[in-house]
Lab assay of single mutants.
Amino acid sequence: MSRVPSPPPPAEMSSGPVAESWCYTQIKVVKFSYMWTINNFSFCREEMGEVIKSSTFSSGANDKLKWCLRVNPKGLDEESKDYLSLYLLLVSCPKSEVRAKFKFSILNAKGEETKAMESQRAYRFVQGKDWGFKKFIRRDFLLDEANGLLPDDKLTLFCEVSVVQDSVNISGQNTMNMVKVPECRLADELGGLWENSRFTDCCLCVAGQEFQAHKAILAARSPVFSAMFEHEMEESKKNRVEINDVEPEVFKEMMCFIYTGKAPNLDKMADDLLAAADKYALERLKVMCEDALCSNLSVENAAEILILADLHSADQLKTQAVDFINYHASDVLETSGWKSMVVSHPHLVAEAYRSLASAQCPFLGPPRKRLKQS
Rank of each mutant, 00 (worst) to 15 (best):
E351R: 03
T200R: 13
G172S: 03
Y259T: 01
V349N: 06
A122E: 12
S92K: 10
P5G: 06
A19R: 11
C361E: 13
C44A: 13
P7V: 04
Q209D: 14
Q316V: 11
D153L: 01
S358V: 09
L282G: 13
M228Y: 14
D166S: 11
F158P: 00
C294F: 05
L348E: 01
F199D: 15
E46Q: 10
I170E: 01
I217K: 00
E334N: 01
R99T: 15
V181Q: 06
F225Y: 13
R221D: 08
Q173S: 07
A359T: 03
V342M: 03
S374G: 07
Q212Y: 08
V161E: 01
A292P: 06
A275G: 01
N72H: 11
P367N: 08
S119H: 02
V349Y: 12
V91N: 11
K31S: 09
C159N: 01
T156V: 08
K134I: 01
D315S: 08
T200L: 14
K103C: 15
F199K: 14
Y87T: 13
V181I: 03
S58D: 04
Y123D: 01
A220D: 15
Y24C: 02
H231P: 11
I217E: 00
D77R: 06
F102C: 00
I217T: 10
Y280S: 01
S80D: 06
K64Y: 13
L274T: 09
E118P: 12
K252S: 09
K64G: 10
M269T: 07
M178W: 03
L107Y: 08
A207Q: 15
E20L: 10
I305V: 03
C289T: 04
L306P: 01
S55K: 15
A276D: 03
C93N: 07
F257S: 09
T156W: 11
P9N: 03
D166W: 14
V163I: 08
R124H: 15
A19F: 13
E290K: 04
V299C: 08
D130N: 01
S33P: 02
V4G: 01
L273F: 03
A292R: 12
D201M: 05
Q173T: 03
V163D: 04
P73D: 14
K369I: 01
V126G: 12
P10G: 11
Q127N: 11
N301Q: 13
V299L: 05
L364H: 13
K134R: 06
L69Q: 14
L88I: 05
R185L: 08
G192T: 08
S59R: 02
V322A: 04
Q120L: 04
T25N: 00
K237W: 05
T335I: 00
G192Q: 08
N265E: 02
L273E: 00
C361H: 14
E20A: 03
V287D: 04
F43P: 04
E12V: 05
P9W: 09
A109G: 04
V342I: 11
M35L: 05
V18P: 13
L297G: 00
A187Y: 10
S80W: 11
F229I: 15
T56I: 01
L282D: 03
T37E: 05
F158M: 10
E46N: 04
D271R: 05
S21P: 10
A61T: 02
K28V: 10
S55W: 12
F133P: 14
V287L: 01
P5A: 10
E183K: 04
L76I: 15
F363H: 14
R3L: 03
I38H: 08
D166C: 09
L186Y: 02
L274P: 00
R138K: 12
L333G: 07
Y34Q: 10
A321D: 05
L190I: 08
Q209A: 15
S226Q: 15
Q127W: 07
E195N: 08
A309E: 00
S226A: 15
F158A: 06
N177Y: 04
M178I: 07
S92D: 14
K95I: 05
R354V: 10
S6T: 11
A350S: 04
F158E: 03
V126K: 14
S2V: 08
A302D: 01
L364W: 15
V246A: 01
P362K: 15
M341C: 09
S197K: 15
E50N: 04
G132C: 00
K95D: 12
E230Y: 15
E334W: 03
A146W: 14
F141P: 13
I325D: 00
R370I: 10
V224H: 13
D77W: 10
G132I: 00
K110A: 13
